[in-house]
C-alpha cells in the first residue's frame, strides 16, 4: 500500500489520539528496534512493536486498526525499560488496543480456560481487563 502524505493527509489525527491515550512521544522514537529485539511475544505478532510505532508516526490508521500484534502484548515492559528514548511502548500497545476496542473490534474469542477450568483468577481477571473495555 502506498502512503500518501501531504495536504490530503488528515492532520495526523490518529497519531494524536494514540499520543493522548498513551501520553508517550511518538516522534521521539528513532526506530532502533530494541523494543522488538527483546519482546517476548514478538514471534506471534504480525507487526513488531517498533513497526506499530512507525505506523503510528505515519498515521496509518488502517494498518493499526487491523493489526493483531497489540493483542499479543503481555505488558511485560521489557521494551519500556530498555528503550533508549524512554518511550513506554507497552502504553502505546495499550492505546492501539483501546482504539480498536472503541471501534468495536474487541477480541471475541473465549478464553481457553473454558476448556479445562483450571485457570487461576489472576489470569482470568487480567484477561478480561486487557481484552475488554
Amino acid at each position: 500500500m502506498k502512503i500518501i502524505l501531504g495536504n490530503s493527509h488528515p492532520q495526523s489525527l490518529f497519531a494524536q489520539r494514540i499520543e493522548a491515550l498513551s501520553r508517550q512521544k511518538l516522534f521521539a522514537c528513532y526506530q532502533c528496534g530494541k523494543c522488538s529485539s527483546g519482546c517476548p511475544m514478538a514471534e506471534s505478532m504480525d507487526l513488531l512493536p517498533n513497526r506499530v510505532i512507525r505506523e503510528a508516526q505515519l498515521n496509518n490508521e488502517p494498518a493499526l486498526m487491523s493489526c493483531r500484534a497489540v493483542w499479543f502484548c503481555s505488558s511485560c515492559f521489557a521494551c519500556a525499560v530498555r528503550c533508549p528514548k524512554g518511550i513506554d511502548i507497552a502504553r502505546i500497545m495499550e492505546a492501539v488496543r483501546t482504539l480498536q476496542m472503541m471501534d468495536g473490534k474487541s477480541i471475541t474469542e473465549k478464553p481457553s480456560c473454558e476448556d479445562n477450568g483450571t485457570l487461576p483468577q489472576i489470569a482470568l481477571i487480567s484477561h478480561f481487563r486487557k481484552f475488554n473495555m
Binding site: P40, S44, S126, H127
Partner: peptide
Amino acid sequence: NECCGAYQTAMHQEAVVRR
C-alpha cells in the same frame, strides 16, 4: 527476568507455552 507470557495464557496459550 523474562516474561512468562502472563495473562496471554487465557487467550494465546500456544504463545505462552513457548515461553
